[in-house]
Design a protein around this nucleic acid. Sequence first.
DNA 1: CTGAAAGCGCTTACAG
DNA 2: CTGAAAGCGCTTACAG
Lengths: 335, 335
Amino acid sequence: MSKHITMKDIAEKVGVSTVTVSKALNDKEGVGGELKQKIKAVAMELGYRLNTAAKSMREGLTYNIGVVIPERFTGPDQSFYLRVYQEIAKALESHGYYGILHILSSSDEQELQLPRVYYDRKVDGIILLGQISKPYIELMNSTRTPILFLDFYDDHSDIDAVVTDNFYGAYEMTNYLIRLGHRNIAFVGSIHSTSSIQDRFLGYYKSLLEHRIPLRQEWVLHDRDEHGTLIDIAMPAELPTAFVCNCDQVAYLVVQQLKNNGLRIPEDCSVVGFDNDIYATLTDPHLTTVEVDIEQLAQSSTQTMLGKIASPDLRHGRIVVPGKIIYRDSVRELL
Amino acid sequence: MSKHITMKDIAEKVGVSTVTVSKALNDKEGVGGELKQKIKAVAMELGYRLNTAAKSMREGLTYNIGVVIPERFTGPDQSFYLRVYQEIAKALESHGYYGILHILSSSDEQELQLPRVYYDRKVDGIILLGQISKPYIELMNSTRTPILFLDFYDDHSDIDAVVTDNFYGAYEMTNYLIRLGHRNIAFVGSIHSTSSIQDRFLGYYKSLLEHRIPLRQEWVLHDRDEHGTLIDIAMPAELPTAFVCNCDQVAYLVVQQLKNNGLRIPEDCSVVGFDNDIYATLTDPHLTTVEVDIEQLAQSSTQTMLGKIASPDLRHGRIVVPGKIIYRDSVRELL
DNA sequence: CTGAAAGCGCTTACAG
DNA sequence: CTGAAAGCGCTTACAG
């Protein structure tokens, strides 16, 4: 193996000290303009690459951020969080940081085992992507490592979170349906399952309230069991004219089920989703849905995390990233 | 911020030197059994965590592996490589290593810009996941960083690669169809697009050859343009009784197209896929397909990479991971 | 079995 | 504007 080039090599070649090389390469004050150019040129010529480990030790920063996703959100048919991770990795890189992914196994979550990145002191902070058990949140919170929740939050008011505006997205979507003449509108989603679903439900409910449409409990449909596993949806005896589904995958299943019952979408029944993921265009007809702004989610969480590392005591609160309705073909206007 | 605990803190508390602490914590020789236990107990009590940066600098290893995926393989509807990455991250962690994901933008690929992880000396080796342009391969190869191809290979006989056994998988699948009485079998996939598709085609062809079934060029169908974008498939005038598709997504599209032409699957026409990804069970009927063993792919590539880091001059060659036929409902027996 | 010394490559005060 | 000194936390010879 050819030895790595260090600042010392550059210093010797140029005939200055390593201190000066360090200053020049980092654009710090205290080096003459001409000398600085010279040093940079020689660095380039020699193929110098910074030894990050040395810098890390010196500064006490790893320039890594851990991204922890509970494994139940990473099945073969759930790529959403992996896509978020991908965007986070990109966003971090543009700030000179790197992401390290950790899939948290369900057993580690139950047994309150912290991710290895923590014990190896591999990261300067941890982004928790996807709702996790309360005891685990407590545990993470007790580590004094900067923590950020992404795509969920709970009653830990002392932890910062970045979330999609689930509430407002579902509210706007329901308003849209009502504007088209719908008044019999169901919500599909188990409202005690995750805070996302709960907030989407509340947005739907607010829209009903504002329009003085009573909430009918038999039109709030369960879509998953207590483990989060999707279950068959029990259709109500009296059918609504529209279904607000808590996500595209469930909307896809609802459409299938309605079709099996001989109904046409959207002629007989309108169905809307949330997320604008692969299921939105896999459904026939393509779903009207709310697009989650993954890129913005990634950027906000990256910036917030870097801010927390720089000033650990600064509070950021709950940062809400708005979504956007994508109009497609699964909704019909009622006359 | 509370100061971090170091080996020195442990050493002082126990009344020994940091050398002894280091030996004890790393299970190295030269520490008495009882003392070792004592040291470990105190480390635990104090909540000691290794400073990886210091270890890294000392040993010249980052304990990180870069995983580079060209961005064209990471669209919203392509989660396969992200899932492979996820498994690699897991496999690496069990070896005390971590993965750092880098999505290679198409412009960086064209302009031969190496990933930042390289310049920041963030990784001990790079796994290239997904076919990449030849000039870029040359470039990577010139860096003297250990490189491993994953899920593709080309004529660089001096680079190691881990691939799914595309050839054998398609060969077995075609054999299966022939065993069921099919003799008019088409292949769907642009055979100059990627080496995976090419190898799957060759496996299909070998099966035909062995059974003395002539290859009909009009039954080798294009499915994507030169950019890899999927295109409408031009069905041949005379229809075969079975389609061997190069991947599940394309099988899904073929099924749709055949259905639109009024054909029933599998009664009128059999269709098989490859990958066993989300499209396999999204298709109606569910696809008979070849499952790619993602976990094994991840483990083999991780082990090979760690082997290369330990012994840079050792050659590993092309490591082939077998797939497995998953029998479902898209194939019918011809009598 | 235990420890003093040296060094990995960098950056931050501080002195000139 | 430039550089000598010190130190980040660890581990590897080496000496006792």
